[in-house]
Design a binder for these strands. Structure first.
Lengths: 357, 357
DNA sequence: TGTTAGCACTCAAATGTTTGGAGTGCTAAC
DNA sequence: GTTAGCACTCCAAACATTTGAGTGCTAACA
């Protein structure tokens, strides 16, 4: 059954009011709050219908109504439609978030961490941002060097200037000439490739060219794979976990403890990364992919950096979160990441010159 | 005024009992609990004295007594003495903590993080461990390489295999021969030095030798200094922040929020790092160096790795924490770190060989 | 037929009242 | 110096009472 326009208006009014106050809302409130000019009695009748349809519920007899998950869902879907329309009308939307501080950023990590923090501060919800997913990363540069008798250091620079390093144990010094050759071999074979591109053909070709160092090359490749291919190592930056204390329905010690633990063990948040990497998702209550967040709503968005790397932004708040504001905020971060990343400021060295004259 | 033996016994009994129950303890309890064979009335008299002396206090008239900070202090000091004696008697103390999992450790960071976690799990308090303080670190190896037209990558390996890297912007490709020379210059000049060792003499000598790349060398040195000398970058690993919910006196949302925020903003914990780097410290209530922990007790210990690098371990719990167990646990971690670090397992490459035949 | 006024009813939350018991301090006797 | 005994305090839990926001239903109205 479809909701007629009046029911829809009343439902929206109930939800809006509840979002603001956090208190169950009664018929009299709605009767004044809307411009429908209906008496509370009429509203009551409509509310009874809405309840029967499952959009709202009563915490107990003689209390007002609060939205059910189904109600929220309708509201959010509706809002998303509106947003889309708006977006098509306006060229771009105004960004009202206060400017990000992009000082002192010399690594993607730092940027993302500070983004998470700003987002949390602006929205008053908990936030998380994953690092860009490096499965998709291409190797830009590999450098092998001997640290001491027993250790090789393998440094990998990936697209997006993400730097990974691994120590590889060896049994003895390796002739520097050989090291040079290995470096050339590695770079000529692997540069520009992502983890999926490194197939068996390439591997066997490399081990062949390595001659009697084939075993070492194999070890290096293992190290490369582990360093860049390990999904579990996906860095996750979180912030504002303690914002949940601002919402009484989440801040009893049972809930708070569970939620904050989830943020402490960041890996538990990986399931928020959407499988089909696109768009903005709103999970309400039971819908959320993380068990510990059954009483929350979660908004996730996939961001895409200038060079195509993708990651996930998440906002976690109470079910009665200000969806509109949250969506705006997350969109804004998405936008920022799209452009900002292109020229990360390497401001740790001030000099104008750079070793060329 | 010194406490006579009987008062001492009673005080200890009060504290012990309070640690166990968390409830104010009354005279009758003590009268039975101890082997003093005194009536509750006598205990009451003594308790009145102890209260006047400031060792215990009443939450309200007609409640039992709880230890004051001063009382805890006496108790802890006393216990520490005992411990010392014990330690001198026994050769080494038995380590009853369940074995640490030192699998999958290929970096100090991972080890410390997992240590913090184990410590938290074992004690049921919040924990933190700082990374070794790298001011003291010596440079083991420096590698400069050109990533693309605009960027040099400078990788520094410090003692303890801590790896730091910095990107240095340049304006053009640098001749690979020059790069090699620079690498040799950097390594021959800086290897084995810590940040304090790099004085003006060395710097000017280096810039001289660099000839017309002196400006680049200066930039590199700046980068080195920032990478290894920046105290604010000291990594801090925390765990078990949510354990505070196990103690009602800390888990009201006011307190919990404040405490957990402190753990989220790890940098706020730096003040727990003792100035005079030695021994085990117990801070009770107001004594703690971190404002947000006024209602907690904090135990810190300085650990020292095989090669002399130092860092800090911290346990944060309620004032009525089990000091004895906590001290044992922290000592145990300290011991583990003393020896374990020496041979960090580089288990990410299984092969027996390593490029030498 | 949809809307509304009116009324009886419900129930959570706030407030007030009672009671029990753990604990104290003091005093007098041992 | 120690103890038994007693009057006193005061929190906490249990219970009772009040209040008011909100409901559902019915009957009357346009």
């Amino acid at each position: 059954m479809e909701l007629d326009e009046r029911k829809m208006k009343i439902l929206k009014a109930i939800i809006k009011n509840y979002l603001e106050t956090g208190e169950p809302v009664g018929s009299r409130t709605i009767s004044k709050y809307t411009d429908l000019n209906l008496s509370s009695a009429t509203i009551r009748n409509e509310m009874a219908d809405l309840e029967e349809l499952g959009y709202i519920l009563q915490p107990h007899t003689s209390a007002g109504r609060i939205p059910s998950d189904k109600g929220y869902r309708l509201y959010v879907d509706d809002m998303m439609h509106e947003k889309e329309k708006e977006l098509k009308e306006k060229e771009t939307e105004v960004d009202e978030m206060k400017e990000f501080l992009i000082e002192k950023v010399d690594r993607v990590e730092t940027l993302l961490q500070s983004m998470a923090k700003t987002l949390a501060t602006n929205t008053n919800y908990a936030t998380m941002i994953t690092g860009p997913q490096i499965q998709q990363h291409k190797i830009k540069f590999i450098q092998l060097s001997q640290v001491d008798e027993e250790k090789l250091l393998c440094v990998m620079v990936l697209e997006g200037n993400i730097i990974k390093n691994k120590i590889i144990p060896v049994e003895d010094y390796i002739d520097s000439e050989i090291l040079l050759k290995l470096n050339i071999l590695l770079n000529s074979s692997l540069n520009g490739l992502s983890i999926e591109d490194i197939n068996l053909g390439i591997i066997s070709k490399m081990t062949m060219q390595a001659g009697n160092h084939s075993e070492l090359v194999r070890n290096i490749l293992d190290a490369v794979a582990e360093a860049i291919g390990n999904e579990e190592n996906m860095p996750i930056y979180t912030s504002g976990a303690t914002n949940i204390f601002k919402y009484p329905e989440l801040s009893d010690s049972e809930n708070a403890s569970r939620l904050i633990s989830t943020f402490e063990e960041k890996q538990l948040l990986t399931s928020l990364v959407p499988v089909h990497n696109e768009g903005i998702q709103v999970y309400i209550g039971d819908e959320t992919p993380v068990n510990t967040m059954k009483d929350c709503s979660v908004i996730t968005a996939t961001y895409e950096l200038e060079d195509g790397l993708k990651g996930t932004i998440g906002i976690i708040g109470p079910k009665r979160m200000d969806y509109e504001k949250a969506l705006e905020a997350i969109t804004s971060v998405k936008e920022k990441l799209k452009s900002v990343y292109h020229t990360p400021k390497e401001n740790h060295v001030r000099g104008e010159d750079s070793g060329k004259e």
